[in-house]
Amino acid sequence: MPRIALTLGPVFFHWPADRLADFYRRIADQAAVDRVHVGEVVCGKRMPFSDSIWPEVIERLERGGKEVVLSTLAAPATVRERRAVNDWCSEGRLVEINDVTAIPARSGQAFVIGPFVNVYNESTARFFAARGARTICPPVELSLDAIGSIARNCSDVDFEIFAFGRLPLALSGRCYHARLNNLHKDSCQFTCEQDPDGLAVDTIGGQEFLAVNGVQTLSNQVQAFCPTPEDLRAQGIRRLRLSPHTADMVAVAEAYRGLLDGAQSPASTRFALSCLDLPGGMVDGYLSGKPGFHSEGQST
């Protein structure tokens, strides 16, 4: 039986360089993940803060036996951002493409398609596979059946499911942290740094609903998809993605490794996750074709 791998996705939030470096040191040494994404995905303005730490982080992760993937910006716009995308694409390491801007620079070499690129069907998956896609993590709103249907028709690519973390739901040209603080995006003062898991957005009826992270909107609730390994194999899924939060990600990885090895049941895995300091309630509705905020797992 093929082993289902675990991937640690890129950090979506604006963590200070020290926090990032510490985080990846611990991941390198202790986390039961096979692959680790590094790099800024959400906001090009944050890049100068973390640029200098990546060489050491990458070296440390590789020394810890992790495969490193360089994640590129999801919505590059300025000349500097476009150049950053191109620079990472010309690196020897595996690159995650989060916008088609990167395709011309990377076509013909191996890449990962991230959840910000619209892969909704087998034709699109095969199109990217023919140009070098090795792994595809489809948009978060697709159901497990839909992803399985694509995966079974595109078997030379690893399909990865966004299994854990606040769901990336939207990107904007506008920065909501800046807007909330009456600042202009161009002089935003990086107030997003104050919310290392994103800032909760409630409805005026008082319901927990969304979270903002600069130009990104996420779910308030945390995706906690806990399938059996058999469910995943039946759909041709080879990887699960865990998205970093301030909660103990080593413990999250351990819980998922136990689940995928058959050592823990979905229910006990969910219980283990719920004991961690998560920023919101647990959901998994998207995977069963329901609204994303539904939680199928908890009712069974």
Partner: peptide, 16 residues
Amino acid sequence: CVMVEGRCYLSSYATG
């Protein structure tokens, strides 16, 4: 649309 078009899942998060 205030979000980047074609890459917004707010609606399905609430309604499917």
